[in-house]
Structure formats: C-alpha cells, structure tokens
Design a protein around this nucleic acid. Sequence first.
DNA 1: TAATCCCTTACAGAAATCTGTAAGGGATTG
DNA 2: CAATCCCTTACAGATTTCTGTAAGGGATTA
Lengths: 221, 221
Amino acid sequence: MFKKILLAEDFQGSNHGIVEALQEKLHIEELQEELYCDKAFTRLKVALKKDMPYELLITDLHFEADHTERRITSGVELIKEAGKLQPNLKVIAYSQENNPVKVNTLFKEYKIDAYVCKGRYGLTELLNAVQEVYHNRTYFSPQINLNVTHNVFELDDFDRAILKELANGLTKNEVSKKFKKENITPSSESTIDKRISRLYDEYGARNTTSLLFKLVKEGKI
Amino acid sequence: MFKKILLAEDFQGSNHGIVEALQEKLHIEELQEELYCDKAFTRLKVALKKDMPYELLITDLHFEADHTERRITSGVELIKEAGKLQPNLKVIAYSQENNPVKVNTLFKEYKIDAYVCKGRYGLTELLNAVQEVYHNRTYFSPQINLNVTHNVFELDDFDRAILKELANGLTKNEVSKKFKKENITPSSESTIDKRISRLYDEYGARNTTSLLFKLVKEGKI
DNA sequence: TAATCCCTTACAGAAATCTGTAAGGGATTG
DNA sequence: CAATCCCTTACAGATTTCTGTAAGGGATTA
C-alpha cells in the first residue's frame, strides 16, 4: 500500500473521517492534510527535493476563498501544477462535482487516476479508489458512470409527492401519516426514508435541505 | 368565551395541538374538528337547524384533494358558503398563506374576523385571535402586518452566507466551524441557530428545508 | 420448487435540528 | 451613571434526521 499520501481538502466539514479512515483501514504511515492548495503544493515540492516524494495526492476541486492570499485557487490547478512537478504522482480527485464532462476532462487532460464523488458512500468509495489506484487501475464513482449513460436521474411520482411535502416543511413522520390518510402507498416512514436516501446518492446531496435545493436549482421540481 | 367552535383543518400535521390548546387554555366546551370542507359545512347547517349554532369557525384555506369526492374544495369557498348560511358566524382563517393581497381580500370581501399565519407562533397567535374575535375585534398576524408595510423581509449578508452553506448540505455546526476558520463573525452555532429561527418566523417556514425552498422559489437566493 | 432479488416495513442508535432559558457585553437612552 | 435593549454565546431537552440491520412478502429466474 501507499506509504506517503497528501490530502488537500478545503474545509467542508466532510473531511470528518477521511484521515482517520485512511489511517485505520489502509494503514497509511504518512498522511498529511492541507487546507490550502498553495501549502499542499509546497509540501509536494519539499518532499520531492528531499527525495522522499509523496506517492498519492487526494484533492478536492473547489477551494473557497477566505482571508488568506493564494496563487493556486482550485484543485484543478493544483493537479496541473503537481503533474508538471512530479509526473509519476498518482492523483485522486474527491469532490461534489458530478458533471461527467468535467470529470472526463480531468481524466483525459490532467491524467488523474481516480475520481470520487462526495456523498453518502464517498468515504467508502475513496478507500476503494485508493486501493485501485495503488494497483495501477483507475477508478471513478458509480454515480458518474450512471450519469454518463443516463446523465439524469428521473424522479417518479412517489418521489415528487414526498419532496413536495418535505418542501412544505412536514416531517417524514407527518408525510407518512398524510400518505396513510390519503391512501397513497407505500406510506411507512421507513420507506420514505429509504427513498430520500436513495435520492441523496443519486444527486450527491448530504441531507434533505441540500437535496431540495439542488433539485429546485436544476428545475426538477 | 365562545362555547361552540368548529375547526376545519386539512391534515397538515400542524393541527397537532390546536384542539388541545383551545380546550385547555380557553376552556371551550364544544369544539369539533373536521378534515373536509363539506363535512364542516354540513355540521354548521345541522347545528343551525337545531337552533344550536356554532359561534366561531376556524378554518384552513388549503384543503388537498384525496380519494374522497367533494363539493367545497377550499377554505375560501367554505367561508363564503358559511357566511351565506349564517351571517353572524365569526370566522378565523388559519393558513400558511402570507400574501397580504389575498389576506386583505378575505377581510374585505368575505368579512373574516381574524387571520393567523401558521408558523412558529401560530398556535399562540391563534389563541390571541380567538380572544380578540370574542371581544368583537379583528386580528391578524404580525407577519402579515409587516408584509403589508415592507412586503418583503430582506436578507442581509450574514443570512445569505448561512443559507448558502446550509443549501450545500453543511450542518449548522459545520457552518459555525467554517465561519470561525474564515474569520466571519458572529460564528457561534447558537447565533446561527437564532438567525435561522428568525427567518422561519419571517417567512413562515417550519424548518430549514422549507425555508430554503421558499426562498429559492421567491428568487431571494 | 428453490434461490434470488427487490420492495416494504420495523426498529434502533448516533447525530443534527429546533426551541427555550440564561448570562455577559456593547450601544443607546433617560 | 443606571436602565434598557439587542446581539452573541452557552447549554439543555425534546424531536427529527440519517443510516444501518433485519424480517417478511411478492415477483422473477434458474
């Protein structure tokens, strides 16, 4: 397994357990984390100069601006610069982006080795991706795969019915009761939960709020 | 206080405690609840015929269609019919509707006595409204009042910053941490909570999901 | 018929949300 | 100066969300 990995991850709250998971499940010995592209790039350079280069770079694509100045402002730029600096460096992009066109560009133009969508199973997928890349294979999230073929997940009537009520502020429990009263089946809270969870995967949402927001923005509801 | 009240309330999960609150706090002796406009109207008719008329009708405006057939399909129609049947009947409308134009119409055209916005303090306001109406005064929710004058609540930059992160699926705790990292003040989770809760009031939302949905639909974010 | 898959449902535990109370500090006002 | 108001923050408890496990039933397939 890789011995030396660099993680460049904009603070998103999502890096909750990335470091822990990589260390505990894959037993990575050296694993550094950087919140800024510039710092990450510096680390790569220093390590290379010391003849102890990183083997793998895992990076987010979007890094939000804050009060600190910066030269490299996005994961894509970081990947590009890193590739010039150290062509043998493996790269995994880890982001919410699920536009297949953009993801394809990353593979073809910047030669990344894996692409993992953040989302419900993002962490698990990331672990898989690391292993695949270690064995010189590429990996990308099944969401993207599906997106390439369908490009769109369709909402069915049941999905829409649930989403409508949630948008109006009902709790899932209330939605369940309402469905029972209106003879809409299925109606159990559990099934409603499952449906919504599936939509999280399909649309890369983290919770009901972000799901609704994405769907409205995409004009799906 | 009123002795005989009829409550017509589409199932919305929101009628949790209406009946209990009215009975316990205002000690209403006779308080019936109906889920359908037609049934509510029949009740009014029967009571009048028996010379034991209702004194007050509290009704929702929106009644969703389900498997049962119906003649009267909305609270507005119910109010209209009830007014023809029994002109001295007091009426309180209780709904999510917060369009001041529509609410004004209800007062002017259908002579309702009070209008209460569903929302965080909806129940408390309803109790106030009942008392005001009992003393032959009118009442309407402060939200509407403000809406009439401003017609719009404005989001400030801080509101927008929070909403943006919530829309992306961050938890409030994560938003707080992010603000701290980016030197945005205030940044405590508690203050963020308070801000969002205030927006619930202002926009008549029940939770984050419905708030975001309303705001997107209104083009505010 | 048996194995398999998928849908529905129940349930449970951890995390997050929502709401109220309260304390401290700065600004405003009498 | 003191009283007041408002903003920020901490905290706590009840409710809701989110996620995983598992059981049962119907449909499909070997």
